[in-house]
Design a protein around this nucleic acid. Sequence first.
DNA 1: CCCCTGACACTTA
DNA 2: ATAAGTGCCAGGG
Length: 88
Amino acid sequence: MAKDRKTFSEKVYAVVKRIPKGKTLSYMEVARRAGNPKAFRAVGNILNKNYNPDIPCHRVIRSDGSVGGYNRGEEKKKEILKREATLA
DNA sequence: CCCCTGACACTTA
DNA sequence: ATAAGTGCCAGGG
């Protein structure tokens, strides 16, 4: 088995970057793919502090279906989600 | 190493 | 359905 080359945050970025357009993954889904299904907390914390243009963090929402939060504004996030969902 | 923070999730009232 | 409390994990100082 390969070793944990990067930190949890790096894994989270990779997972989020893999999210297809018009698709939304919950924090727990991302945390699950990242390697720690219990780290959904850390996922949000990491995304919030490290907002990368290559990472569509707006596709990461809460398990309830709520958009959760967004560095640019939840309203904006919802708008993007709706737009991608319609176009995708 | 210890303490605090945080875009969450789940349970109970 | 809503509100409050609890448990979880990683990053930063």
